[in-house]
Each structure stands twice: as C-alpha cells, then as structure tokens.
Design a binder for these strands. Sequence first.
DNA 1: TTCACTGCAAATCATTTGCAAGGCC
DNA 2: GGCCTTGCAAATGATTTGCAGTGAA
Lengths: 141, 141
Amino acid sequence: MDSTSIYLSGFGIRPSIQRIAIMRYLQNHKTHPTADEVFEALREDIPTLSKTTVYNTLKLFVDNGAALYVGIDEKNARFDGNLEPHTHFRCKKCGAITDIPMNVEDFLPKEFNGDIDEFYIYLKGLCAQCKSNSNSKNIVY
Amino acid sequence: MDSTSIYLSGFGIRPSIQRIAIMRYLQNHKTHPTADEVFEALREDIPTLSKTTVYNTLKLFVDNGAALYVGIDEKNARFDGNLEPHTHFRCKKCGAITDIPMNVEDFLPKEFNGDIDEFYIYLKGLCAQCKSNSNSKNIVY
DNA sequence: TTCACTGCAAATCATTTGCAAGGCC
DNA sequence: GGCCTTGCAAATGATTTGCAGTGAA
C-alpha cells in the first residue's frame, strides 16, 4: 500500500493502477495538464490506458475534492493536484500556468447575501521570465 | 448614427446591423448569454443572421475590449457587455450568473514579478433567492 | 474596385456516452 | 455473483474554417 493509494482512499477513491498513475502525474508535474497531456504521458507506462479513463478519473478526482479543475484555458480543461489555497497565473507569451499562493477566502465580498463555496481567481499577463527574455516573438493566447 | 454605433466605433469596430444588434443585446440583457442564446434571441429580428456571425462578432468584441469573455461556465463561453470592474457569481441551483462589483486591482499579489494585465474572479454557490427559496429541488451545475 | 463583412456548409476537436469485457470483493 | 472499473467506438455539441456572395467606402 503506497502513499498515493492511501491518499486516494482518504478521498473515498478506490486506488486502481490507472488512478494511482494519474494522481502521481498530477502531483509530480505542476504544469496543470490537460486530460490529453496526462494521457500522452502515461500511455508509455500503461499502454492499455484509454483516454476515456483519463477523463473519467480526472472528473472523479475533482468531484471528490482530490484535484482541482482549472478553467484558465478557454480551449481545454486543466487539472491541478495542488490543494493548497492558491490562484493561477497564465503567461500569454509562453503559455505556462503557475500557482500563486494566495488565500482566496480573504477576498470574499462582504455585502453578498448568498453562500459562496467555490472561488476561482485567474490571472493573465507576462511571466517574469518572458518579461526579461522579451526577444522571443512567440505569443500564445 | 445611434449611440451603439458610436460606442462600437470607439473601439475601432465598424457598426454593421448585426454588430449593433449583438452589442445592444449584451447591454440590455445582463444575463451573460452564450453565443447560441444571442443567436436565438436575435434571429426573430434578423432572420438572415447566422451563428457564425454571432461567434465572429462576440470574438471581435472581446478582442477589441468592447465586451468581456466570461469563463465561469465550463460548457459554453459566455459574454458580458458590462465593462465596469466586477466579478461573476454563478448560482449552482438556478444557474443564474450575476455581477458583483469589486475592484480586482486591489487584490493583485505584490510579490509577483511578472506583469498582470487580466484578472478574473469566478464565484460559485447559492444565490440569496435560492437560499431562502430552498423548496425547489432543481439543481444546475 | 477593393476589401471588409456575412452566412452557409463542412470540418474540427474536446468531451461524453453506450456498451461489452474484465477484475475485485 | 454482483458491482465497480476500464476501454473501445460512436455520438455529441460548441466553436472554427473554407469559401463564395454581398455590400459599403
């Protein structure tokens, strides 16, 4: 029983080979991958893996609170294994998505009468590296 | 030359019949409609309107800063003609998306070294009406 | 006349669904 | 055995693209 199995079980998720591999990938790659990126990366190790399983599993993780859905990219859904309070920044030049530690609870509007239970902050701009490295013309939106 | 024409021209957008109608719809309906909702609403008045034009026009508005893209709904892109600083709240029960006035500039993290030029906050939960009206079982995710 | 704009049809592409096979308790 | 999980193939549905016709400067 490895640590990822225990981790998944803690969320009520039964640890299959596929689920363990996908969660490990999310935790070891802080790149906020798409379902397809996860699939392409893992099919080497698990040749029988199907993209349906990757989609199902990522959805399962999000529904059970074991991973976060990241909607910063209009094209594809992205996923994040980091459950610490943070927000997401996407560089419009290199396309990289990075975490910014930030306690979103601090920003809840006070005069609002409903109940808020999900809170997303997405930032976009130019990352520090692309800012100094501004010789490259490669722009990603 | 009506006010919507002048408004669009201010963003460098040439005011065609279709563009005026779509911008008017955005400004008169604070519902953050999808491209399809705009299309369905306007086809009565403009029977020859095509969905392609609605997509093209909404994209043109966003690219030129005349409207905002709202990514709070994972299924469809939504659009907002309100350019005042505000954030978006979606009720998970009734599905309504409402604006919450909030100056996002105040929340820019200070320790970040890149340049941030876009800032989105999406809130989800239960709106005040659905909170009191909690007899309905109709849930929208 | 030129070039932007429009609209139809077809293409694209991420994601979901149906369903049968496999595997675990 | 029964239920959960997986994976293939097909379906779905939003959005984009190709291209030809239209219209305005």
